[in-house]
Design a binder for these strands. Structure first.
Lengths: 185, 185
DNA sequence: TATAGCATGTAATATGTTACATGATTGA
DNA sequence: TCAATCATGTAACATATTACATGCTATA
């Protein structure tokens, strides 16, 4: 899971309350990782129990007190550890957990080991390339003449096309990331 | 949720056991929807309780009995209803539930109302286009000179690029689908 | 006056993953 | 003999969604 780590990254950029985190997730990290306020509150409590974050209660007039969270040394260490570790999410489907996990790690690259991260990008890229090859093979063998399709065959083909286009987009992104992260690709 | 409906589509194409469904999911529908055998068994039982599927127990030698599932009239009706109904999944993130849901519906288009489905494709397309516009706006305003970036700025930019490329891929696919599904786009 | 924003949370439910359990057959 | 395939399932846990609850302030 990457939600606690996404929260760590967000809090390192800027300390804030659960409410503020929920709003930020709607924009920045939310490209890849959505979270409701309920879930963020719950996760923050767990993270506090684990010693990854600390709270400062800010008393306000006319509003409930605000709990401003910040990252502890333990939280920083956990984020470093997690960023260096291989991707753990499931990678079967097109809209996969691995890609989202990697996006969070890239977002937090400054707080971790960029070399280790690059290795993970390379690994995910080759996984994705293999998947794309498989899909392209299906396309060639099962749908040699797409223009002739209709009914169930057409619908199966369209879904396969979705897979192919998604994988191509994924590869394009991973290549951009590798170029930008530089080093011995 | 779309898993029961993905199962209905798969069973309409060909009746089968939970085990067989799990294997099929690894290939075809699994482009967009992954499922373990544990989850499939659980879901099949619920579907049986709801009267969407019926079971034929096939006795085998040397192996556990095989439960071959087929779709009932009730299941067929439910699939029709579900396909015609607007997308219900969450669509905030790049790797969104809506796209996966739509993929399942397209796969089952033969068993439902294609006109109603096309409306959903159009709706999702405009949502995605709006999202892409937002991301492109961020890119222009926050990162006018990407080549100058490094550190946290670069990492934020890379994640945004991931969002942009994913949305572009999504749009390309939805356009292909609309063309193929034809009609008054 | 009504809606949106600020700010927190509980509870119930749904969905999904991981680990464990069983046991025969087939092919390397 | 070892691993893979066939075939089903339970139990515990992790994660996520929906509905409900409170209550003030600022803006249209």
């Amino acid at each position: 899971m990457a939600l606690p780590h996404a929260i760590l990254v967000s809090l390192l950029e800027q300390a804030g309350s659960g409410y503020e985190l929920a709003r930020r997730f709607d924009r920045s990290i939310g490209y890849f990782w959505a979270a409701t306020h309920q879930q963020i509150y719950k996760t923050l409590r767990t993270m506090e129990d684990d010693g990854w974050v600390h709270v400062d209660v800010v008393v306000q007039q006319g509003r409930p007190d605000k709990k401003v969270y910040g990252v502890t040394d333990g939280g920083r260490a956990e984020l470093r550890r997690w960023i260096a570790q291989p991707l753990t999410g499931k990678g079967s489907a097109v809209t996969d957990a691995r890609t989202r996990e990697l996006a969070v790690k890239i977002r937090g690259a400054t707080y971790g080991d960029v070399d280790a991260l690059r290795d993970q990008v390379v690994a995910l890229r080759s996984e994705r390339a293999r998947q794309l090859d498989t899909y392209l093979g299906f396309e060639k063998r099962q749908f040699p003449d797409p223009s002739a399709l209709d009914g169930p065959g057409l619908h199966q083909y369209l879904v396969l096309r979705g897979g192919i286009l998604a994988e191509e987009g994924s590869l394009r992104w991973l290549d951009e990331v590798l170029t930008a992260l530089g080093g011995t690709a």
